[in-house]
Design a protein around this nucleic acid. Structure first.
Lengths: 361, 361
DNA sequence: CCACACATAGCAAGCGCTTTCTACCGTGGG
DNA sequence: CCCACGGTAGAAAGCGCTTGCTATGTGTGG
């Protein structure tokens, strides 16, 4: 049936132990023997039995990358960078996993808390070497605790836990490292930019209320408003009137913007939860016969690749997704030392482009 | 240390075998016993040891989804749909994997042949339950043979192999099913549309020459030209002059279009390899001070979500990525019967929007 | 009232690999 | 010339789980 270590050993005229050692390369084996074994491996087309070896060695070479939405480039970019960093080194594509050759796999939670937990369990089942969680966490305390507990168990079992673009855990000890984006700072600078241009009535199309990302960005926005003493900045009702929540989708941006425009004719700018939402916002503004940025300025967040191609090019906040993902990958591999305190804040850079301008009049 | 089946058995006062059967739910166990076991599992926070169970059962619940570029929504959408279909059923998030609860993981090859093979080996090591390969294959015959051989071995070992958006294998027998997009037909209809509008000098920004997708789309384009008896349609040199290859990137579209515009001032339309490339093409056209579609029509391919938000909205060819991915997922799960002959062609629908119009004059 | 079928639970033999400990070989120093 | 030691290879004991087969009950029909 399937070729086993023993078959290879027999063909090479050595013991299974020797074959194992050749394959793992962590024990001295004479060159002649090694060659004989390698040839046998080749002849028989032998492929290591992963489960068996993971069982015996009590570790596996799986690294899980959890994302909220794999169809969203925001996650795709981070996951891709992490995966490249993790799978990157294997040059000699050989049998042996001489180095720490790992299999990075990305798991799509679809934003569902249950699925997040399920995947974590499944990864725990597989005795994953590391787990990277990307994207904002849920605000739900109960779920947060469940995740923290699960991660604690994972970490206790030797799995390296890395958070990428996600706030530190409540318990704060399970994760090896947390790379958090400066959503608050980015949000603040973006709104400051709009205020500096002269805008005073700014609509905000926020993300889903249950995500930390949403809250952080919104907090930055409000902070800027407050600091500038913008009209109604301190008035919760007024603020709520200018803020609409919805999923991180184009459609949500479209509809919310329509509503905002209806509610507040004096509106001169719309800040979107992210670039995708901003695209929808742009479409809505245009559909109302208004021009961007002459009549209404629109801004996004994330600076996804397509943002520069929007017409007009989108003013947004650049998040170094690629770099953060790569760093998370290295952290997961143990190639890079965790930041002091296990927490690093990744700066967010304001990108001023053509979709924002001083309000008319 | 870590909790094992035996620990659970001891606590529940039953044998390990019984615990295993409760967890797998494929053998009659008295309700009272089952409850006792389940309680013990809960009390001890027991998590099945995946490797051990895969080893003993000689199968695992991993399903691999290979993608060329995880940061590209083209793949993200397919992978996400497949993953949803695969992980979807687990409602009761329980310990047991009563159904065929599977862990769908996506592996990013980055378009590298070696990595594709490496991942396939790794998946084979893990005794994956199924493998889904998405996106165009490489034209390289040698690599194609290597992949086919590897897939053959996978299939022989009981792994279900599904191709999604990928042409059937050369050997043609290893894969359970191949869902191929009608790239040729889509490309043909797109160009027919342009010809019908009156365009005669049409530039083509093709994808990388080593991908089947590139060739198929281009063949469709040329076929339409030939059928319409367009000037220079039969002239290879003339065609090559209007065709430029490059990666599936925004930048490639930008640069190639600039070059096309320089080479052929009479150009009235540009067809791009995909929507991302088309975005770059649009930018180039605009940067040359030309209007879309009045001066130059631009068309894409795939109909990714952002295409409708391009300005003007992009005429493109819609590929049912979501549906295809979901179907591939079901095929991988064995939930759906493979198409007759194992091969299905997924239709591609022309989406006429605002970026194409009759040429001026 | 006994034998037999059916429903449950337990036993124990692996699954294929890793790794500790032991065995062996040749060699250079005492 | 012998012993100890560095360098290699092998034997064998699991790793934690699944599952075929056997054992034990509990009813039921004869």
């Amino acid at each position: 049936m399937t070729v086993t270590l023993a078959d290879v050993a027999a063909r090479a005229g050595v013991s299974p132990a020797t074959v194992s050692r050749v394959l793992n390369g962590n024990y001295p084996v004479a060159t002649a023997t090694r060659d004989r074994v390698l040839r046998a491996v080749d002849d028989l087309d032998y492929v290591l039995n992963g489960p068996a070896s993971s069982l015996a060695a009590a570790t596996s070479d799986l690294v899980g990358v959890l994302v909220n939405d794999i169809a969203d480039p925001f996650f795709g970019i981070m996951a891709g960078a992490a995966q490249t960093e993790i799978a990157g080194q294997d040059a000699a594509g050989g049998q042996g996993r001489s180095g720490g050759e790992k299999l990075a796999v990305v798991c799509n939670t679809g934003g569902s808390p249950e699925r997040e937990l399920t995947y974590l369990t499944l990864l725990q089942r597989q005795r994953a070497a590391a787990v990277i969680l990307t994207g904002g966490a849920l605000e739900d305390a109960e779920h947060g605790a469940a995740v923290a507990a699960k991660l604690g168990r994972l970490a206790a079992a030797g799995t390296r836990v890395v958070l990428c673009g996600r706030p530190p855990l409540p318990g704060g000890d399970a994760a090896l490292a947390a790379l958090a984006f400066d959503d608050r700072g980015g949000g603040r600078r973006l709104t400051e930019h709009l205020l500096a241009l002269g805008h005073r009535v700014i609509g905000y199309v926020a993300g889903p209320p249950e995500r930390t990302t949403t809250r952080h960005r919104l907090e930055g926005h409000r902070a800027a408003l407050l600091a500038a003493g913008a009209p109604g900045a301190g008035d919760a009702a007024a603020q709520d009137r200018l803020t609409l929540h919805g999923p991180y989708s184009r459609r949500s941006g479209y509809e919310a913007t329509l509503e905002l425009l209806r509610r507040e004719p004096a509106l001169t700018a719309v800040v979107a939860a992210n670039d995708t939402v901003a695209l929808g916002a742009c479409a809505a503004v245009r559909d109302q016969g208004l021009r961007i940025p002459q009549d209404v300025s629109v801004a996004g967040f994330d600076d996804l690749p397509f943002s520069v191609d929007a017409v007009p090019a989108l003013t947004t906040v650049r998040l170094p997704l690629q770099a953060a993902g790569a760093r998370a990958g290295r952290l997961a591999m143990g190639t890079e030392a965790p930041p002091p305190g296990g927490i690093a804040t990744i700066p967010a850079e304001l990108m001023v482009r053509a979709s924002t301008a001083p309000p008319r009049g």
